[in-house]
């Protein structure tokens, strides 16, 4: 009547039983530095060698503070961080106060398609730790190029775009929206997991 008991381990070893939830997640080498954000991202940090898109409602709502811990960590490790065509001048004292080593920082002045080209070159070269860009009229094709370049160069890529682009699909591995009222982060898309439905309140800012 009752079959002989079978040890669960032997079934698992034979691969006849599939265990759904992996027990431990692979730890990423690129934590964001924000514990609440790390907790909801499937890799526990920025997707490595991929494009992350940061959609911002406006300037001055903490969009750089989101990246500063990462940039500080990368520059301290001796990696180079490139800002391709930033919209404003970086104020050195503020970046220093955030812990970013300015000697590892490079700024590239370009506009339009040249900026996209420069960002792609930097990503593809593999000699940078992170590349930040502010694409103006980036279509799906341009973003896909950036994504492929980030993959081939094994480099972190960040693209800042206005929040209204959130309705358009994007090939980026991670899409984060930064809202101003209320100040919060929303994960719109993340590769390798479901996007967290609950927004993350932004930490108190100075």
């Amino acid at each position: 009547m009752s079959a002989a008991p079978v040890a669960l381990d032997s079934l698992l070893d034979q691969r006849r039983v599939w265990r759904g939830q992996a027990e431990s997640r692979p730890a990423t080498a690129q934590p964001t530095g924000h514990a609440a954000l790390d907790a909801v991202l499937p890799a526990g940090g920025w997707p490595e060698a991929a494009l992350s898109e940061i959609l911002i409602a406006a300037e001055g709502i903490g969009e750089l503070q989101l990246l500063w811990p990462t940039l500080a960590r990368l520059t301290a490790e001796g990696e180079r961080v490139v800002l391709v065509a930033p919209p404003f001048l970086p104020y050195p004292q503020a970046w220093l106060a955030a812990g970013v080593d300015l000697r590892q920082l490079a700024l590239i002045e370009a506009s339009g398609r040249d900026a996209l080209w420069a960002a792609e070159q930097c990503l593809r070269s593999g000699s940078c730790g992170a590349v930040l860009c502010w694409p103006q009229q980036a279509d799906d094709r341009a973003l896909r190029r950036l994504q492929v370049a980030a993959e081939s160069g094994q480099t972190l890529a960040f693209a800042y775009r206005p929040l209204r682009e959130a309705v358009n699909p994007s090939p980026a591995a991670l899409r984060l929206a930064v809202d101003n009222r209320p100040a919060q982060l929303r994960v719109l898309k993340c590769r390798g997991g479901l996007a967290a439905a609950v927004p993350i309140p932004l930490a108190a800012r100075h």
Partner: peptide
């Protein structure tokens, strides 16, 4: 992986974007 050193990348960027296109940042 096959990577391009920063010095070569910088020259390539300067060649296309202009000699003054690649800057650093320093606090005064």
């Amino acid at each position: 992986q096959q990577s391009l050193p920063w010095e070569q990348l910088r020259e390539r960027l300067r060649a296309r974007l202009g000699d003054d296109a690649v800057l650093g940042l320093g606090a005064v």
